[in-house]
Amino acid sequence: MKDPAGQNGSGRSSKRRRSPAESQRALVLAMMVLIVVILAAVATVIVYGMQVQKAPRTVGERTLATAEAAVRDAPDKAQSWLSLAYAYVEIGRYSAASDAIARGRKVEDLPDFYIVDAYRAEKAGNVEEAIQLYEVAKKKAIEYRKAQDAKAAEAGARLTGANEQLVSAALGKARLLVAQRDYKSAVVEYDIALEQDPMMADVLVERGAAKAKMGDLAGARADYEEALRYVPGMPEALDGLARLEAGDK
């Protein structure tokens, strides 16, 4: 006769059906083991983790440690919060970066905070959001500059030089648009940046490459040659011209 429970002693007792009390004992035992393992893991994390995390272990952690120290020392300086936000972005702590940006903007609503916010979205892989945020940053940069100009005018002075924040925001947006192969829109952004500072050879090369991609070969050549005017022998510009000669965009 078949004996599935193996109770006649012919089968291995492991095939025997466990009684509820035995199952419960086994479960309690397993729970106790797990509790011990969890406690051991937590204790190890606390004791050893504190040791390994005392000092920075990467350039990102060092930058963060420096930025955190700067914020501790001077929480009323917007620049400290800006550095902290960038440090968080570099190590991938995007929500902490958002928090630092929000707190920094309370100190001073600089356009730089909108740029780092766009950079945060870019690094987090949210390209569409980043493009929108760069656009917001551009507007903030223009407004901020207008306010600065007005303040300077009141003091009988005049601000000169490029609107650096506008350049940064426009370039950030342009590069994302290039990555999306929207060369036409990218060229518009490069134009904005170059209008502020026409002597940026590297940006001229980038715009030249975008123009070449959209088929504006004459425009591309002009940009590469213009870049070579500012940086004679610039390898990237020479490479661009060589690609045009070879018919390779």
Partner: peptide, 21 residues
């Protein structure tokens, strides 16, 4: 408890792997 152990394991990795490596 198993889920808690997984959580502790995740935290373990977060602590031991340096940020920005």
């Amino acid at each position: 408890l198993l889920l808690l152990l997984c959580g502790v394991g995740y935290f373990f990795v977060r602590v031991l792997v340096p940020a920005g490596a």
